[in-house]
Amino acid sequence: MSHGFLSPTGVEITFVLVGLVTLGAAVVSVTTRQLVHAALWLVVALGGLAVEYLLLTAEFIAWVQVLIYVGSVVVLLLFGLMLTRAPIGRSPDADSGNRGVALGVAVAAAVALVWVVVDAFRTTWIDLDGASAGTTEVTGASLFQHWVLPFEALSVLLLAALVGAIVLSRKRNADSGEGGER
């Protein structure tokens, strides 16, 4: 199978277009001054990443991304914004004073990373033809054949996080009344 760097396939063109949308949404999400809009642009970025997973034949990961990130994490972030009484309109102090330093660090890291990875993987192609590598059947088989112990450990971690979140978000002034509840 011949590969050409300047003759991209349809999958590559789609990947680049969706990638541009994703990156643009991410940039708007970290630069906009409207806090709720930042969360909504984050939805676009995470959904674009789900499409990228589909293009990389990781179907199960793509739907998990939609369920967990777009479905629950963004809703949690919006709840957090509402509960901290974030202003709905433009808030002038969304960015701190060190924007210039942050931009410098980010651009320097981007240049270094892109240079290194392009130089490292210049002659590497992913073979996406044939059977899909990420269907639910394949992912489930690998997960429950080779990764059972980490999977179970992860469920314990989720339980600990659940209990921790409940303990952290209880009202403190109830402590004195009930006494010794922790």
Binding site: E12, G80, A94, D95, L113, V114, I126
Partner: peptide, 30 residues
């Protein structure tokens, strides 16, 4: 597909996140 496309997109997204962590003031935006 050339491996450079997803890897470069990933690097750029990571640096966008770095900018956001350093420049944002609201903890939820961080």
């Amino acid at each position: 597909m050339h491996l450079a496309y997803p890897v470069v997109l990933s690097a750029l997204l990571f640096c966008t996140g770095v900018y956001g962590v350093l420049a944002r003031r609201n903890a939820i935006l961080v």
